[in-house]
């Protein structure tokens, strides 16, 4: 291993540690905040509501907004699938050479599509009037950075020579994760949980309604 490769790998490990510690801090902070359970007599089931929120409630056909913006929604889904593929590449990279070529190719394809989806999302953020009005600099930077992370993972899984570059991009992405908008990856779970509890308990979600 060359000095560059070693340094990149150390940077990536440091990034991963910062990301994990940062996310853990956010989780701990959330659990330190008051959470009052709903004492009003239920009309439906909060647990069924939570199940719905994490499963069927995410389906594109379940919401008018996602039905209306199916292309944008699928672009987002693709981007996130690409992120997961990139994370798999990141974790598996030390053993990349022993991964079946077909699996490597699949990961590269998924990551490549995900990265392109991310860049298209970035373009939409620049181009759409509404999105520009609600975006912060962090929004642009985070999407660009994560797209780059995903795209370089595609390169890394195909060519070992690209691994150091991927590690450096990963290090930056992972260090930034707890500080910018990417930290929604932690808060998302709390938000969907609250959604499920609220609408499930009140019997708004059909499958959670008491008979």
């Amino acid at each position: 291993m060359s000095t560059v490769e070693t340094s990149a790998a150390i940077a990536a490990i440091v990034g991963a540690v910062v990301a994990v510690v940062g996310c853990a801090w956010h989780v701990r902070w959330m659990f330190s905040l008051p959470f009052k359970g709903d004492v009003a007599t239920a009309k439906g089931s909060a647990s069924k509501g939570v199940m719905y929120a994490y499963t069927l409630g995410m389906a594109p056909w379940e919401k008018e907004s996602t039905r209306r913006h199916m292309v944008g929604y699928l672009r987002g889904v693709l981007f996130h699938v690409g992120i997961f593929a990139a994370l798999v590449v990141f974790v598996a990279s030390p053993w990349a050479t022993v991964i079946w070529p077909s699996v490597r190719l699949l990961l590269a394809a998924v990551a490549c599509l995900g990265g392109i989806a991310g860049l298209l999302g970035l373009a939409a953020r620049f181009g759409e009037h509404n999105l520009r009005a609600i975006s912060t600099k962090d929004d642009y930077f985070a999407v660009a950075l994560v797209s780059l992370f995903v795209l370089t993972s595609a390169l890394a899984v195909l060519s070992p020579s690209a691994v150091p570059v991927f590690y450096v991009v990963s290090a930056v992405t992972l260090v930034y994760l707890p500080f910018g908008k990417v930290r929604h990856c932690v808060y998302f779970f709390f938000s969907r949980f609250a959604f499920g509890v609220f609408f499930g308990h009140r019997g708004v979600i059909e499958g959670a309604r008491s008979q």
Binding site: M30, G72, D139, H184, F190, A194
Partner: peptide, 17 residues
């Protein structure tokens, strides 16, 4: 700011959907 409000404040990714 309780857990519910914090989740609402932190989770939005400004997708505009």
């Amino acid at each position: 700011v309780d857990r519910k409000l914090a989740a609402a404040l932190e989770t939005c990714v400004r997708c505009g959907i």
